[in-house]
Amino acid sequence: MIDFKKVRKAYPNGTVALHDVTLHVDDGEFVFIVGHSGAGKTTLMKLLLREEKASSGRLMVNEFNLSRMSNFKVPYYRRQLGVVFQDFRLFQNKTVYENVAFAMRVIGTSPRMIKKRVPAILNTVNLLDKIHNFPRELSGGEQQRVALARALANNPKIIIADEPTGNIDPKMSLEIMNLLLKINKLGKTVIVVTHEKSLVDYYQQRVVTLKDGEIIEDRVGGMFEE
């Protein structure tokens, strides 16, 4: 569950990126966050990732109150999230297996568990046959699937994808979106931040539209309004 209650975010330079945003996302929902540059999408993402703290209001994600949470608890909160970036952020000197295993190793998962779980996750994203390849040997779509596998590695409750199709061709974009829907059907909440109108319109999911730091529309089966 994600719950924004009158969340406001102002930066030290005086810019107000979000104005009293109220938004509720239930467990297992699939939500597109859309809007043009400067609409507040990035700030919303940063608040969800707890890179930034809200200036006022209350932001709850499951049992975590992000507005009051101490820095010490942030890593444990982030283990509930799986994050996918537009630029993949894969390690070029590590194989597909090692990239996914890395996410598990750094939270202290045992080598035995890593060996067991990584192939299973790669199977979910249809990349088992590329397990020993390096990222440079993969297409953009495949690299994003590795990033998605890495996001799933620690079995998070929520997947946050920041422009996941921004660096890949339209055909691959559909493949990534289909995978995100598949992951959503497995019971995970999926938040996709994008400005790709065609994808949003095609998938007919819940669409939250931001403009100048405010939610101007929140509709299930909605479209990306220009």
């Binding site: 982030r78 952020r89 390690f91 750094v106 939270i107 890495r150 590695a153 620690n154």
Partner: peptide
């Protein structure tokens, strides 16, 4: 730095980093 960024997003503790 890129490795550290990914570590932080997947929930590695400050000490682990």
């Amino acid at each position: 730095r890129h490795e550290i960024t990914v570590m932080r997003y997947v929930g590695a503790t400050g000490w682990f980093i």
